[in-house]
Design a protein around this nucleic acid. Structure first.
Lengths: 249, 249
DNA sequence: GCAAAAGTGTTCGTTTTACACCCATGT
DNA sequence: ACATGGGTGTAAAACGAACACTTTTGC
């Protein structure tokens, strides 16, 4: 059994050269149909559809989510959703907040608990997901029309991510296991929407001792190859606890 | 109609010389009884009570909360609860997160949305509340046994408050309209659980220009009377937006 | 050899820290 | 006159901001 009035929605973030991206799901009309009053006549349904184009159009996308099963913990269910969508376990996942406006979903009351996840771009092609056909990455600046209040949830997710990234070492989850200093700088620049000074940024990173040289360099680049770095897990855990200050300029 | 599977619980914080306090509610047995399976026999109920002493004892207290009405927004409902409990409007109120472990409430599945509120101690005596008889302030270090996961919710509220207070000017809501610099320092010390240096603390405050001298002094104190300060609302709004850094030492 | 990005140091002003004594008031 | 907390300055160290050129590599 599922709880009719509680759902979970996941804002799945990815990052690459083109910026921050969100993984969205093409809306499933069967699911939407279930939201309508059970005894609605076809005339009523027509009117409802007219009033809420989101319910019929192929243009609308949504966050990956679902109703919470009666016997599952929220975090656990969010993790399951994420596994369904991406085939990945052990993804960084964090609750945003509850969204509970009474009319956020038409014709029924659903409170949704928003989560955001940070995806390592090595898994961008979603080959491990069985739902990959209905899923697509969208650039944050070019989002399609979204169902319900999903746009608002994404904006909140972004705010939370910003907050988090300034004071905790979480942004790194959006990078591959080995990454260059330029990549991490551009990650921060995109998330915080702010240009940063390379020398100062690197000094700051160096002082934290969070990164260690992997000994490997970039391959096949048309310019000087950059060193690839990795975390120091111990330092990472320490900074996760203590916090850090990444407000720059 | 209310949503059976969604509640809101408020951690109501107060502050005085003795430290941080939380407003708790003596548990209402009628409400608890409703949680039990409707057809439970008296023998079953006896066993349930035995297994869950929280359901019978007079010792247990709970956060002020309730099930969400079908037509009310979460924030709005939290505000209403707060008004019921304290008689106050316009209280600082912020969502903590959703708590959804499947067994957090025995015999039924309830996901609760936690909020925390910061109360101006001028209103400590709750004269405006019609529920004042069942309510009591508890020192955070001397909490009574609590129902369900309410202790955990309080701990989370405290963590959120700590986070918030370091980077935004919210702690001030726990102080009366006019307050001394020593009061605000001890507020920070209690919340962050850290001794601070008076001279450095005051220099930091001065630099922010958040406080203005009210022109008034303490009365009837057995030592030199301290100046009373107030906010500069403009600066307060600015810092609320931009954030500030109150990590000290 | 040139295009493209990687990598690196110094200076200066600001902020943070550590630290101790006198002041005003009530009893 | 004494007890209680209020109020204040300075020096040294760390940090943050601004700023430009050389290095490596692939084509």
């Amino acid at each position: 059994m599922i709880l009719n009035s509680v759902s979970v929605d996941c804002v799945i973030f990815g990052f690459d050269k083109s910026g921050l991206r969100v993984l969205l799901n093409q809306i499933d009309k069967e699911v939407l149909r279930k939201l309508l009053p059970e005894q609605a006549s076809s005339e009523q349904i027509r009117m409802i559809y007219e009033k809420h184009p989101v319910l019929t159009s192929d243009l609308y996308w949504n966050l990956f989510g679902g109703h919470v099963p009666e016997d599952q913990d929220l975090d656990e269910f969010a993790k399951n959703l994420l596994f369904q969508a991406t085939g990945l376990n052990h993804v960084f996942l964090q609750q945003i907040s509850a969204f509970g406006s009474p009319r956020r979903v038409p014709y029924t009351r659903v409170i949704t608990i928003g989560y955001y996840a940070l995806i390592n771009p090595d898994y961008y092609d979603l080959k491990q997901s069985n739902l990959s056909k209905s899923l697509k990455w969208f650039n944050l600046n070019e989002l399609p029309p979204l169902c319900f209040d999903h746009n608002q949830i994404i904006q909140q997710a972004l705010l939370k991510l910003r907050q988090e990234v300034m004071y905790h070492p979480v942004g790194f989850h959006l990078l591959p296991d080995k990454f260059t200093l330029t990549e991490i700088q551009s990650l921060y620049e995109v998330i915080l929407n702010k240009k940063m000074d390379t020398r100062n940024f690197r000094k700051k990173l160096a002082k934290m001792k969070l990164l260690v040289d992997s000994g490997v360099k970039q391959q096949n680049v048309a310019h000087r190859a950059a060193k690839l770095y990795q975390f120091d897990i111990q330092v990472y855990e320490k900074l996760k606890m203590e916090g850090l200050n990444f407000r720059i300029e």
